[in-house]
Design a binder for these strands. Structure first.
Lengths: 157, 157
DNA sequence: TGACATTGTTAGTCTATGCTAACAGTAAGC
DNA sequence: GCTTACTGTTAGCATAGACTAACAATGTCA
């Protein structure tokens, strides 16, 4: 199984592959905000697990396994971001998705996809759901004490 | 800010506090499946950040800050589990939530809570959403190749 | 083609959090 | 109130994945 970090690298590699057609360590270190020495080591690790082919000083290429997994990772990321936007999240979408995505199984991803489909097939419902939020507004920079009170109030209803 | 691990400890401490009225290292090491030496160290760390009060060989107690945060952590955990059940997830709910919860902001949690409220106020809709899944079924033990094909098919529609 | 800039690699260090082993404190039963 | 079992603490080690520093390879251009 891939670690969180390995997934991040593989996802970025796949993305860059799609955009640029090839991937070099420096692109990865820029995209992931890490040093190139970290990139080299991770690439070697992903090579060992057969997600890509690593040859010193050469461009890397994905194996079929790496390509399929990479495609999944990109899809998962995009779908979760869609989901948060659907909920009406405004800030920190990327950060939250980057963190949580690693833990969500393909099965659950399918269910989330279904939810997105459900609401896009019923845009009126989405409107009703968003209208609800105007009432039960929840501050963006929420203080925990406030959260506690909020929950308490709503449990009383 | 708390790390994932620190949050896990604090959540468990809060939970045990509610159930037993006090917390000892051995309870934590059992609940979290770690050695008691790891517990000691983490407790010392949480004491440094003022989430609890640590005294050698004595029961620990939460500070107000720790109590509020702990309550939030327990609520977040419960709410996310509710959300996955609402989606119709059947397996791995606990594991997924344990992983993802650390990354979700209070603001987003509020939105998820709203979604749960929305569907519980409209149980018929929930039925419709679940019915959709009977059609767009997604295998539990999904192969990535299968996922890819599934996505492709549905994008064609 | 040779010099310099860019990129990639290796080796060694740091931090978080797990572990084991050895030791210290507490408490229960005789 | 001793002895023994349980619980808690400390110290030292392992691992993942960051980092920096030093070095190696590549590529560009005068």
């Amino acid at each position: 199984m891939l670690t969180e970090s390995m997934e991040d690298y593989l996802e970025t590699i796949y993305r860059l592959m799609m955009v640029k057609g090839y991937v070099r360590a420096v692109d990865l270190s820029e995209a992931l905000n890490v040093q190139s020495s970290s990139v080299t080591r991770m690439i070697q690790k992903l090579d060992e697990s057969d997600y890509l082919v690593y040859e010193k000083y050469r461009n890397i290429s994905l194996t079929p396994k790496g390509e399929i997994y990479g495609e999944f990772l990109v899809w998962r990321d995009a779908t979760l971001k869609q989901f948060l936007r659907l909920l009406n999240a405004k800030v920190g979408i990327d950060e939250q998705v980057e963190g949580m995505e690693h833990y969500i199984t393909p099965a659950t991803m399918g269910l989330i996809r279904n939810l997105i489909t459900f609401f896009s097939q019923n845009p009126k419902l989405l409107g009703e759901f968003h209208a609800l939020q105007q009432v039960k507004q929840y501050p963006d920079q929420v203080d925990l004490r406030e959260l506690r009170a909020w929950e308490f109030r709503h449990n009383q209803e």
